[in-house]
Design a protein around this nucleic acid. Structure first.
Length: 474
DNA sequence: AGTTGATGTCATAAA
DNA sequence: AATTTATGACATCAA
């Protein structure tokens, strides 16, 4: 019979205590070629051979692989005894390419191909984080594979979110100058209480270092006539509102030369702003700011000089939309910080210290400058932090989508497997029936499916073994 | 008037 | 030790 399966496969019946010891010795390991089967082929034999052939030909089932760590449900697929010894289904061999076809078109794949160099934002953030976001459906080996696969699909969220960069438009240019407009919208900012500026957290600055306190605590170089004697509450915006015509005539597109040529308006070069060329810092390095400011305020039109001073913080008015000064900008203006805010924030610490060394600043000014630097850096950090947070959200949502697709795929595979398993069981049952029927006919031994089973060993031979020894025989 | 998103700021920890 | 960076929490504003 089995010779008909592949021509070389003998059916060896290893059976203890068989009724016919002449053919089948009582040794468990002893086997006998049942060549007699071949000589006595009957239509029933042919059917049985055919059944074997069918059974063994179901290669697609042998290749059918379902990860045994199916995370969704532990199903005892292999509970049926006849199937145990076959072991040809590779159910415990998840394939690396087991990413479902439904995932192929997933955006992540596009991301991967388009941005292969990119790390997942999640991993960029914290390479150890994967241990935290493994979903419950992951467990053991399968989870790591799954994660590995999905991690290979990095969404380049940076580019997607680049445009989300939170630039609120403070009006600070690269050169560190600030747009100063005194029309329309500035009125609101001018009229507003500076302390009600966006983001102000009240009462959290140290009293001594507080720019608010500093602004009020160091009025020494504020002129007695009040021309520049605004407090922060009145600020420059207030004056803008009061003198729109003067300020409006200022050429706001004046900008200072970029670092390191920081410049500062001195009494000497304090000309009408639209004609002025600012001097590099080297030429004013010895300037003592309060004195200079005092001179500045005492000579000529105060507001014209104010405009010049403001242009320190102004940026070219490239847009027609006026940008109100931020709180720190107003403070810097109030305390007459002699350099651009973006330099305060963006210069490396050495350059920053060098810049500070170029001026004699009061404690209040120094405190303000350092506060501005700290806040400015933290502002950028907060923006980056939020950007990363968004990227991670997008990335995790993307990954969740992949996992769901993978789950659907596995569910479909499981269903298909179960259907095929049912077919196999049915065919195997038929086969058993035929084999035992034939053995009963030929050997007169009442082989029962309940007592014996067919078992294929690694060498490909099929044995008829008692059930109670079946596993040991393997 | 309450909600929500964006943004700035502060405090704190970590690098 | 000083500085920078990251992040949670909170406040404010605008839609």
């Amino acid at each position: 019979m089995c010779s008909a399966i592949n021509g070389v496969l003998p059916l060896r019946i290893s059976c203890e205590g068989l009724a016919n010891p002449g053919r089948l010795h009582g040794e468990v390991s002893m086997s006998t070629n049942v060549t007699g089967f071949r000589a006595q082929r009957s239509p029933q034999h042919l059917d049985m051979d055919l059944a074997w052939q069918e059974l063994m030909a179901i290669t697609e089932l042998q290749e059918f692989e379902v990860p045994n760590e199916n995370p969704f449900e532990a199903i005892p697929y292999l509970s049926m005894e006849p199937m145990v010894s076959q072991g040809g289904f590779g159910m415990s061999q998840p394939q690396p390419e087991s990413i479902p076809a439904t995932c192929d078109a997933h955006p992540a794949a596009v991301y991967e191909s388009a941005y292969p160099e990119m790390m997942p934002p999640y991993q960029r953030l914290n390479p150890h984080m994967d241990m935290h976001y493994s979903l419950p459906v992951h467990s053991g080996h399968g989870s790591s594979r799954m994660i590995t696969n999905t991690q290979a699909l990095h969404p380049p969220l940076m580019s997607l979110l680049e445009h989300m960069n939170m630039t609120r438009g403070h009006g600070i240019t690269k050169d560190g100058v600030i747009n100063l407009h005194c029309t329309g919208q500035i009125k609101q900012a001018c009229a507003d209480d500076p302390e009600s500026d966006s983001g102000l957290s009240l009462g959290s600055s140290p009293p001594l270092a507080s720019p608010e306190n500093a602004a009020h605590g160091v009025p020494s170089y504020l002129p007695a006539d009040g021309t520049m004697g605004y407090t922060e509450n009145e600020s420059i915006g207030e004056q803008c509102r009061m003198q729109p015509s003067l300020l409006g005539s200022v050429d706001y597109q004046q900008s200072y030369s970029s670092y390191p040529g920081t410049s500062f308006p001195t009494p000497a070069n304090m000309q009408p702003i639209n004609q002025q060329t600012y001097q590099p810092i080297a030429s004013v390095k010895q300037l003592v700011l309060p004195t200079a400011l005092h001179d500045l305020q005492l000579n000529g039109s105060g507001l014209t000089r104010l405009g010049a001073y403001q242009s320190m913080y102004s940026k070219p008015k490239s847009s027609s939309v006026p940008v109100p000064l931020s709180r720190d900008e107003r403070r810097a203006l109030a305390l007459k910080i002699p350099f651009a805010l973006d330099k305060i924030v963006n210069l490396p610490v050495d350059d920053f210290n060098e810049l500070l060394a170029q001026f004699t600043l009061s404690d209040a000014q120094l405190a303000l400058v350092r506060d501005i630097r700290r806040r400015g850096k933290n502002k950028v950090a907060a923006q980056n932090c939020r950007k990363r947070k968004l990227e991670n959200i997008v990335y995790l949502e993307n990954e969740l989508g992949q996992l769901r697709a993978q789950r659907e795929h596995l569910t479909r595979e499981r269903l298909e497997f179960q259907q095929n398993l049912a077919i196999i069981k049915h065919r195997l049952s038929d086969l058993y029936t035929q084999v035992f029927s034939q053995l009963r006919d030929e050997e007169g031994h009442p082989y029962s499916v309940d007592e014996y089973l067919l078992q294929q060993t690694n060498d490909g031979n099929i044995y008829l073994v008692p059930r109670n020894t079946a596993l040991e025989g393997e």
